[in-house]
Amino acid sequence: MDQVVFRKPKLLNDTPMHYCPGCTHGIVHRLIAEALEELGEYDNVIGIAPVGCAVFAYNYFRCDMYEAAHGRAPSVATGVKRACEDSTVFVYQGDGDLASIGMAEIVHAATRGENFTVIFINNGIYGMTGGQMAPTTLPGQKTTTSQQGRDPKEHGNPIKVCELLSTLTGPAYIARTTVTDVKSVRATREAIKRGFTMQKQKRGFSLIEILSTCPTNFHLSPLDSMKYIDEVAVKAYPLGVYKDIGLIGEEKKQ
């Protein structure tokens, strides 16, 4: 008997995505939709889209969506969550959005222990505006505003978001992953699922940072972009769970 073994998750629309070839936004969108579906959450989900390449995320997700101002998605989510306490709310932000212009908003949402889940796409560059230096751009990395490569003496140093936010008391779960191969894709889905489960259990703030690609602005092929993540980016941004207060009904984790 025939069996459906792979299909579009319920939370995704049947719309071709506008992302560049090799960009990991599409993978992460799908993982969010899969994780929510696995948890039985698709009727009462609200998403907050950022400014950046994912600005049109509402075209791909089927849930109610807000388009936030640059960096302000955690504040919008704070308001949404107050108004709709029983909804599952996710915030989708890039590194410029979250770690530069929206640093205050993310830090304070985290420290308040806001009960929503942040998906943080860290590709170390401003994709939509054309490859400018991001707060997470690595030393030596060439961008359109650091054309000789980022020089910490001139441009400052990259910000490590998971490390920074995990010093706070508010967050329940903070992890950094990649989506460069099957194994890491699965691990990311599990991490996202864990973040949403934290939210369902009202454990507080969760954030999953996904080291992502931008082949267009990396000036690398899709494959080389993935390789760059695995070989270079992970050294600056080590993968792993940075904070986990444990789920209800689980053995206590450290």
Partner: peptide, 19 residues
């Protein structure tokens, strides 16, 4: 909610008002 800034406060209004 006492927001971290006026910037944040108005965006919280955006969220709650939008809901």
């Amino acid at each position: 909610v006492q927001a971290e800034s006026e910037v944040s406060a108005i965006n919280m209004v955006y969220g709650a008002g939008g809901a």
